[in-house]
Simulated scan of single mutants.
Amino acid sequence: MRIAFTKMHGLGNDFVVLDARAQPLPPLTGDVVAALADRHTGIGCDQLVLIEPSEVADWRMRIFNSDGSEVEACGNATRAVGLLIGGEVTLETLGGTIVARPDENGVAVDMGVPRFGWDQIPLAYGMDTLDLPVGWPLDSAACEAVLEHPVAVNVGNPHAVFFVNDAYAVPLAEIGPVIENDQIFPERVNVNVATVTARDAITLRVWERGAGITQACGTGACATAVAAMRRGLVDREVTVTLPGGALTIVWEPDVDGAPGHITMTGPASVSFTGSFDWGDYA
């Protein structure tokens, strides 16, 4: 059975997109996802995205990391799907329904409302999510000896945000998986290391849960911007620069004591299209 795919990326965070809106696909298992995502023997991607019919939105978007695990949200993938479908579109995800629409700077995505409760992240037990009293030692002498006191935010998926003097000095490839799999995070966590460079600018690197270091992470940019805003480090609109490029994040004012919505704006692109034989990967 030949299956068509579209290879896309948002600031270098790349996806294999499968469109099942018109015709259902065979069951998509974690093993199939991991095989397709393999950069040596598959198509290669950070995440695989499946577009399906939805009963609550225009379409349903399912997101799988390269290790085969299904995740709740992906901001860059949402921009990619928004570009692929065109126009304003509502998308059902495991993290809730979100809206993507065309913008002069690419695609703007309403990421919904951030969540800050310890049980909403989730954490293993109650603590102050604006300043988690935890830390992890670093081996590198070129940066802080301990990566500590992160902010925890859920923007459809869980994030821990660390503010450091130099985001590029942190040995993220080594410490990322340690923090991701710490027992304090029962559903694992995305690890963000950020440096605030101005009231409207942040430099960011992200270790993505189930995918590793990627060129960009849309939910990570949203989580980091909101964390910095909560700590009073930046204003309510900020440019977050990742290795793959920049995203604009706006956090609307609170409404009747409830957090406002987050809007993320940035580019997305089609890299190429093709097809594969499902039996080669199943």
Rank of each mutant, 00 (worst) to 15 (best):
M1P: 02
I3P: 01
I3G: 04
T6D: 03
H9G: 03
H9Y: 02
H9F: 04
G10I: 07
L11W: 11
G12Q: 09
G12S: 15
N13L: 10
D14W: 15
D14Q: 11
V16G: 02
V17Y: 10
L18F: 12
L18T: 08
D19Y: 08
R21I: 04
A22T: 13
L25R: 03
T29I: 03
T29E: 09
V32I: 15
V33R: 05
A35N: 04
A37N: 01
R39G: 00
H40E: 06
G42D: 03
G44H: 11
C45I: 13
Q47C: 08
P53V: 02
E55A: 14
E55Y: 01
W59M: 14
M61D: 07
I63Q: 11
I63G: 13
G68R: 08
S69L: 01
V71G: 05
V71P: 03
A73T: 11
G75P: 14
A77H: 03
G82K: 02
G82Y: 03
L84D: 09
V89K: 15
E92Y: 05
G95Y: 00
V99L: 14
A100R: 08
P102R: 11
D103H: 15
E104N: 11
G106A: 02
G106C: 00
M111N: 08
G112P: 02
F116L: 14
F116T: 08
W118S: 13
W118K: 08
W118F: 12
D119Y: 12
I121R: 04
L123H: 15
Y125S: 12
G126H: 13
G126W: 01
D128E: 12
T129F: 05
G135C: 00
S140N: 13
S140C: 07
A141K: 04
A142I: 02
A142V: 06
A142M: 06
E144C: 12
A145D: 13
V146L: 14
L147T: 02
P150K: 11
P150G: 10
V151K: 06
V153L: 07
G156V: 12
N157D: 02
F163Y: 06
V164M: 05
N165A: 15
V170W: 11
E174C: 01
E174G: 00
G176M: 10
P177S: 09
I179V: 13
D182R: 06
Q183K: 06
F185H: 09
R188I: 02
N190C: 10
N190T: 13
T195H: 04
T195W: 07
V196S: 02
V196N: 04
D200W: 09
I202W: 09
I202K: 09
W207L: 07
W207Y: 15
E208L: 08
R209I: 15
R209N: 15
R209K: 13
G210D: 07
G210E: 03
A211Y: 01
G212F: 09
I213S: 00
Q215A: 15
R230Q: 14
R230M: 10
R230A: 07
R231K: 14
L233I: 00
D235Q: 10
R236K: 06
R236F: 05
V238C: 05
T239F: 04
V240G: 12
V240C: 11
P243N: 07
P243Q: 07
G244S: 05
G245V: 08
L247P: 09
V250A: 05
D256V: 03
P259N: 10
P259T: 09
P259H: 08
P259C: 13
T263K: 13
T265Y: 14
T265M: 10
S271I: 14
S271P: 00
W278S: 02
D280Q: 12
